[in-house]
Design a protein around this nucleic acid. Structure first.
Length: 420
RNA sequence: CGGGGCGUGGUGUAACGGCUAACAUGCUUGUUUUGGGAACAAGUGACUCCGGGUUCGAAUCCCGGCGCCCCGACCA
């Protein structure tokens, strides 16, 4: 993509009402736009990142047998009244409104009820189970206090998967598989070494649940981490439960963190109340055993910014970066223009995602913008580099800089970049 | 929801109750520049959040509303 055609521009200063690092950088670099407290729009660069993250999740969910669907955000209150969760005292983040024709509805803050209810139409026999289904959906939560940029918003994109199993045994097998998949996911998006599998409260669902907590000062949870086994326990259940047999109290260190994913054992809480049953091999009705598994896509994006950014700007991991390469032409000579256009064309031909800063701007401004936007590889072409028939390659994360022949980039850019 | 802070050109800031609301940045045009946010010049851009009130006079003081941020509580 040509940067000159990108409608967003970088800014030197963030609006004063943004204090959090993620919103500050994402707004200055042009990834997001704030509509109101806790509500952000995603602009071209930001949307690309969001999609990258979602696609990684999608691959993982498909790989363990998830079937993607898209349920509605508008919710009929009836099914929620059956489970008792239409009550504002039980779920205090409802956005509710009235239909003009009469009747009350709400914007889904989560989707246990509609998924359970939906499956009553499709689950009949033990042969139908287990079954896993998921979606990417905008969730609406009327948070009393939105905060920390895109980390806690009132409207946000979430992946939620629901598992339907015959019994607890079958459920546990999947639950553990999902834990592993979540680990892989956080590894892939660059948060692996900061993210801990954490024992936490099960809320209204069950005694315990598991969260994936990323250590960052921008977080709002407190966890106790054991580096030995890479696990943690949330403060909320700290007194009640030790996290694992080989962790001693003195091994644990207290950290501030943010919940980037969670997995819940729902048991038969929803299938009992909503009457979701199947016939077992003896023809007897049994309640379906359920689980739910969430990942906040926007929150993961914000967390990546919080954890990996440096004083110059954002640092995207390759897996989620809006582009792999930021191509920058320095100088306005015909040679530079021609050479950078050729490299741009060559990268596109090789299906390398590239943002080409073709603007008529000075080097300093382009470099500063590039650092702010945080694309993994920067390739600079100037009269200096052309004198050596080369381009300068700089790695955003490490600052490592080296020259590489133009011919090599034209032949196979990925091979050239992979060395770094 | 309790506490605190704050609303002024697109953005960041300034202005004692008193001149045509200032400065920086951005944007436009021109000249000169061209490897780390260039220089000069000329432009552009604000009913000072909204509504009342006090006053000869309000961005400034008072009341009400709306909005934003932070701390705490809360977080299915």
């Amino acid at each position: 993509m040509l940067q000159s055609s990108l409608f967003t521009k970088t800014r030197k200063e963030a609006p004063k009402d943004e204090v959090s690092k993620n919103a500050d950088l994402l707004i200055r670099a042009g990834f997001i736009h704030k509509e109101m407290a806790g509500v952000y729009s995603y602009l071209p660069l930001g949307f690309r990142v969001l999609e990258k993250i979602a696609n990684i999740v999608r691959e993982e969910m498909n790989a363990i047998g998830g079937q993607e669907v898209s349920l509605t955000a508008l919710q009929d209150k009836n099914v929620w009244e059956i489970t008792g969760r239409w009550n504002d005292e039980i779920i205090d983040v409802w956005f509710k409104t009235n239909l003009k024709a009469g009747g009350e509805l709400g914007l889904a803050p989560t989707h246990e009820e509609p998924f359970t209810s939906l499956m009553k139409n499709f689950i009949r026999s033990y042969r139908d189970l287990p079954l896993y289904t998921y979606q990417f959906q905008t969730k609406f939560r009327n948070e009393i206090r939105a905060k920390s940029g895109i980390l806690r918003g009132r409207e946000f994109l979430m992946k939620d998967l629901y598992s339907f199993s015959k019994n607890e045994e079958e459920h546990t097998i999947f639950y553990e598989k999902m834990s592993k998949v979540y680990h892989d996911f956080f590894e892939k998006v660059g948060l692996g070494e900061h993210t801990y599998f954490t024992l936490a409260s099960g809320g209204s669902f069950s005694k315990y649940s598991h969260e994936f907590q990323t250590v960052t000062s921008a977080g709002e949870d407190t966890i106790f981490v054991c580096e030995k086994c890479k696990m943690a326990v949330n403060k909320e259940v700290r007194e009640k439960q030790k996290m694992c047999p080989h962790c001693k109290n003195e091994d644990l260190t207290e950290k501030t963190s943010i919940e980037v994913g969670n997995i819940f054992n729902l048991g038969t809480r929803f299938s009992d109340t909503l009457d979701l049953t199947y016939l077992d091999d003896k023809g007897k009705p049994q309640p379906v055993f359920m689980g739910s598994y969430g990942i906040g896509i926007g929150r993961v994006m914000g967390t990546i910014v919080e954890v990996l950014a440096d004083e110059k700007g954002i640092v995207w991991p390759k897996s989620v970066a809006p582009f792999l390469v930021h191509l920058i032409s320095v100088g306005e000579s015909e040679e530079v223009k021609t050479a950078s256009q050729e490299i741009y064309d060559a990268l596109n031909a090789q299906k390398v995602e590239v943002l080409f800063d073709d603007r008529d701007a000075r080097a300093g401004e382009k470099f500063a913008d590039s650092d702010l936007i945080g694309i993994p590889y920067r390739i600079v072409i100037s009269e200096k580099t052309l004198a050596e028939k080369s381009a300068e390659i700089k790695v955003r994360a490490t600052g490592k800089t080296e020259m590489r022949p133009l011919a090599d980039l034209k032949k196979d850019a990925i091979a050239v970049l992979d060395v770094f």
